[in-house]
């Protein structure tokens, strides 16, 4: 018996469609499966922390004056380090993005060094830098004796250690931001009477607002997680140079696992809140 034309058409259509649908399913299965592994790892890590402690333990740990002081210093130092990072990262990112000059590749490479350097090495380098005599002159000695403002093993060392790494991320972010902006608008502004500085200030900078917010966010989050350079350069003196990341270390070192986990959870919450708030404000996530 001959097939009806409509049946043949349906069979042909099914022959055409089925292999594609199968291959799409395989694609999504592979991509989604691999992606899910990482997402699952993060979720499980956080869930394990939450399950390990109880709300009572959490509040008891946070009630400790040392932890409260560490929280205050963390909020302050991360904010100062992030502001400084954006302050330095914006002009450096702009110069690297817009101009070709001899030795640009060297500067480009130097900017990445704090990112790839082992954290302890960075802290050690900061410590040596501040105590190394340069023709009889020493940075730490000058700050201490001339300004009455010692740096090493004080709170400014915490900020400087955080800034050293956070700024590298800020420079990268700002460079990408300016790379994505059409330089033509700044050029036209110059034909309209602007100096290069005015073109940057009035045209480039307002356009880079979202990049600045993103750079601030990344710098803040990076500063929050900084530990190695702080440990070496600022020390872990309770109530003086202790930040949340060093609190975890200190609590662990005295065997107080509950407090260490409580502080870790607090850091997770801080990171999530800052990332969400700033991303919504700065990158138009709400739209």
């Amino acid at each position: 018996m001959l097939n009806q034309p409509s049946t043949i058409a349906t069979q042909n259509a099914s022959k055409l469609w089925n292999p594609r649908r199968r291959s799409d399913a395989l694609f999504f299965l592979l991509m989604g499966g691999l992606s899910a592994c990482f997402i699952l790892l993060i979720v499980l890590l956080l869930a394990a922390d939450v399950m390990f402690t109880s709300p009572r333990e959490f509040y008891r740990a946070l009630a400790k004056p040392e932890i409260r002081a560490a929280l205050r210093l963390t909020l302050l130092s991360c904010t100062v380090a992030a502001i400084l990072s954006v302050w330095v990262g914006t002009p450096l990112g702009y110069l690297l993005s817009r101009y070709s000059f001899p030795g640009r590749w060297i500067i480009d490479t130097l900017v990445d060094i704090p990112i790839v350097l082992p954290p302890l090495v960075l802290g050690l380098s900061l410590l040596i830098l501040f105590h190394q005599p340069f023709f009889g002159w020493q940075i730490e000695g000058w700050f201490r004796d001339s300004l009455g403002f010692p740096i090493a093993f004080r709170w400014p060392a915490v900020v400087l250690a955080q800034f050293s790494v956070a700024c590298a991320f800020s420079v990268r972010t700002m460079r990408v931001t300016f790379d994505q902006m059409n330089p033509r608008a700044e050029e036209v502004a110059r034909t309209l009477g602007c100096t290069r500085g005015q073109a940057f200030w009035q045209i480039a900078l307002p356009q880079s607002r979202r990049g600045i917010v993103t750079a601030f966010t990344i710098a803040w989050a990076r500063a929050l997680g900084e530990f190695g350079p702080i440990l070496v350069f600022a020390g872990t003196t309770r109530m003086r140079t202790e930040v949340l990341s060093t609190s975890v270390y200190l609590e662990l070192s005295i065997g107080n696992l509950d407090a260490a986990v409580a502080v870790s959870l607090l850091m997770v919450m801080l990171a999530v809140v800052v990332l969400l708030v700033l991303r919504v404000l700065g990158t138009g996530l709400t739209s």
């Binding site: 033509r184 608008a185 009035q202």
Partner: peptide, 28 residues
């Protein structure tokens, strides 16, 4: 420098300023 030449320039891609209004363009 370009700003001292007193030349009005309209590039092919116009290069309007994304953060300014039409009035601000005319006033710039």
């Amino acid at each position: 420098s370009p700003g001292d030449r007193e030349i009005g320039y309209v590039p092919q891609d116009l290069a309007l300023f994304p953060t300014l209004t039409v009035r601000e363009h005319l006033e710039f």
